[in-house]
Amino acid sequence: MDYLDELESQSIYIFREAYRSFKDLVMLWSIGKDSTVLLWLARKAFFGHVPFPLMHIDTSFKIPEMIEYRDQFAREWKLKLIVGMNREAIDSRQTFPDGAVSRLQCCAALKTDALKHTLSGRWPRRVLDPDSGEFYTVENGTPFTGVIVGARADEEGSRSKERYFSPRGQESDWEVSDQPPELWNQFKTDFAPGTHVRIHPLLDWTELNIWEYIQRENIPVVSLYFDQGDGKRYRSLGCWPCTAPVESTAKTVAEIIEELRSGKFANIAERSGRQQDKEDGSGLETLRRSGYM
């Protein structure tokens, strides 16, 4: 087995532990390359099936290609897709692009709050009917107790402290200094009522591993990752007002891999195009403690 086989095997093992342990399991799908690899690994783990719903938190500021891609593959792969949104903040224009709040406050409202309340079922969920391709609304859904997330340890400091199975409190809060031990391949699959567990099958993967796996498995990803002829591409996807493309002429997966291995991005952090990380010195950690992915 090579290192990609080892990473794949461990991720599959984690998926199956999660599926076995959590009755109300959901997987977050951000449409980016990591969570798309995550989705692919789920199909590996369950022999072509995805036996739990996927949840996307839509901020209404996502780059349009991301939503097109989402809906296309949700139909093609017959996914149970749930979309959550902070309707109130968006409708009342309490957002950063509207000039009302800071970037971090905007992330907290449109992503963290929307996620928290869609997970718990307090806010309505829009659910895709895979047969008709239409969305319908579900009120008072069941709270999810297991949430699969595509976070990687190499993304930034706070994520390097995560466990494969990481408990969250009633308010999705994360107790960084008091995390459960993980021994060998035994994870925290027991949880008290009212709490939930976040599951991280991609924790040991690096950005380079992700692209190597996309290449090996021939996984379709959003076209935004590739240079479309203007010498620019996205390295990390998010909301358009806060995510900038990078200068790059990589047009294929192979060229991206080359760029990461020895080219211009070998030593530049992946999230360098994400503005919210830069506010306040440790923006992402502040966000993550209160429930951000």
Binding site: Q186, K188, D190
Partner: peptide, 10 residues
Amino acid sequence: RFVIIDNYEI
């Protein structure tokens, strides 16, 4: 190898 669970915790 094994782990022991006490009150939801390893």
